[in-house]
């Protein structure tokens, strides 16, 4: 464990909690892409099946349980409890265009052709594009609530911190995982234009609105 990975995990946890609290407190999931949240629930489910097979640490196990629990709670709030506030018309990204190619790539490019490893690879590839429906929805509505931008900032920051973690682990532990690194770079690059808007607008107290 190193400071980049720990802050990365805490940033990820913060993002998940911010979103859950935003929906729960405001009793609304306006502006939130339910499709992205379903993809994240799939990412965690396919990545953390090793909860059943191997124990690494209390921290590792508890964080995985929290991530999976919050992901499904968020999906439940969006599609069940507060479904009246779900903006399905703007959440129109065709996720099959993500899941199918990612599934194919996971079968073709992986470290080991075993069930758990292919699922893990699938979850790594899927996570790198899982935010696209959310970013697409914001580009369609042309704006985002400030709390949603904080959620997205923490979520984008987490994988950026993981990139620093992999640099650290490469030098100090000669560990590297090319699949996770390449997918992590893609994932972080997808947030770049959002990061620019967040830093130039939201941090200056303005609302995030895109030129329609």
């Amino acid at each position: 464990m190193n400071v980049f990975r720990l802050t990365g995990d805490l940033s990820h946890l913060a993002a998940i909690i911010i979103l859950l609290l935003k929906i729960w407190k405001s009793r609304s999931c306006a502006g939130i892409s339910g499709k992205s949240q379903i993809l994240f629930a799939i990412v965690f489910t396919t990545r953390y099946l090793d909860l059943l097979t191997s124990f690494i640490s209390i921290y590792n196990t508890s964080m995985k349980v929290i991530y999976i629990g919050c992901a499904y709670a968020t999906v439940y709030l969006i599609y069940m409890k507060f479904r009246a506030t779900y903006d399905g018309n703007h959440d129109s990204f065709r996720v099959e265009f993500l899941v199918v190619p990612v599934g194919g790539l996971a079968v073709l490019v992986n470290h080991d052709f075993s069930f758990l490893e292919i699922l893990w690879t699938f979850s790594i590839y899927l996570e790198s594009v899982a935010i696209l429906p959310q970013l697409f929805m914001i580009s369609k509505t042309g704006e985002a609530e400030t709390i949603t931008t904080h959620y997205l900032f923490c979520l984008g920051l987490y994988r950026a911190l993981y990139l620093l973690n992999w640099i650290w682990r490469f030098y100090f532990e000669s560990f590297f995982d090319m699949i996770a690194i390449v997918a992590g770079v893609v994932q972080t690059v997808l947030y770049c234009d959002f990061f620019y808007l967040y830093i130039t607008k939201v941090l200056k107290g303005k609302k995030l609105s895109l030129p329609a």
């Binding site: 090793d50 097979t53 080991d112 758990l116 490893e117 893990w120 995982d177």
Partner: peptide, 10 residues
């Protein structure tokens, strides 16, 4: 390359 069992990252 690390097998799944040693995937200690979240």
């Amino acid at each position: 390359m690390l097998s799944v069992a040693y995937k200690d990252e979240l």
